[in-house]
């Protein structure tokens, strides 16, 4: 039984709506940080399971999705957990929903490969900013750090990416 079946059986209602609303965003974050759809789907569902186990608490947060994003961002940059999830993803490969066409061009693929080579916290901040479309306040909530910290992470990430890709850096702000 997949994660969705388990949570529906155990606790319909608020969590189900949360799951339907946020799953795609979590998968996108995980994809940005891993570059693999099957693995991203697995990690997003693991994160949802972690949320479900704490739903009584998490549901009371101002932004429960911030907790879910933190879990998936941490899981996606954890090499050991990634390997485990990848092994499970291989078993699920026939059932996963692949996008109908390539998501990114070759040059964009290289850009996100460079993002994934950044220090973990920088990669997380970049992915939450550009894939999940979050502002610094929401990124700070997701990473459990301050907004100032987020600005530092994004600034250094852009510097590192510009250097890695031999590009002029134009900081957003």
């Amino acid at each position: 039984m997949g994660t969705r079946g388990m949570v529906q059986a155990a606790r319909p209602g608020d969590f189900e709506a949360f799951f339907a609303r946020e799953l795609g965003s979590l998968e996108a974050i995980a994809y940005g940080l891993t570059g693999r759809w099957g693995l991203a789907e697995e990690l997003a569902q693991e994160a949802m399971l972690a949320v479900f186990r704490r739903w009584d608490t998490v549901a009371g947060y101002d932004d429960p999705a911030a907790f879910a994003r933190r879990v998936v961002a941490n899981k996606a940059v954890s090499a050991f957990r990634r390997l485990l999830a990848e092994a499970r993803a291989v078993n699920r490969v026939r059932h996963r929903r692949e996008p109908a066409h390539a998501v990114l061009s070759d040059s964009d693929d290289a850009l996100w490969a460079a993002v994934r080579r950044l220090p973990a916290r920088q990669a997380q901040a970049v992915t939450l900013r550009y894939v999940a479309d979050l502002d610094t306040l929401a990124i700070a909530a997701a990473l459990g750090c301050t907004e100032g910290n987020v600005r530092v992470l994004l600034h250094r990430a852009r510097q590192a990416l510009a250097a890695a890709l031999h590009r002029e850096q134009e900081d957003e702000r």
Binding site: S25, E27, E41, V103, D108, Y130, V131, D171
Partner: peptide, 23 residues
């Protein structure tokens, strides 16, 4: 196009693909 623009555009592409696959 700036690095920031490229990140934003490709980030949106990832989000759209994930949304299409899950919602």
């Amino acid at each position: 196009m700036s690095l920031d623009d490229d990140l934003a555009r490709s980030g949106r592409a990832i989000a759209s693909a994930a949304a299409a696959a899950s919602g």
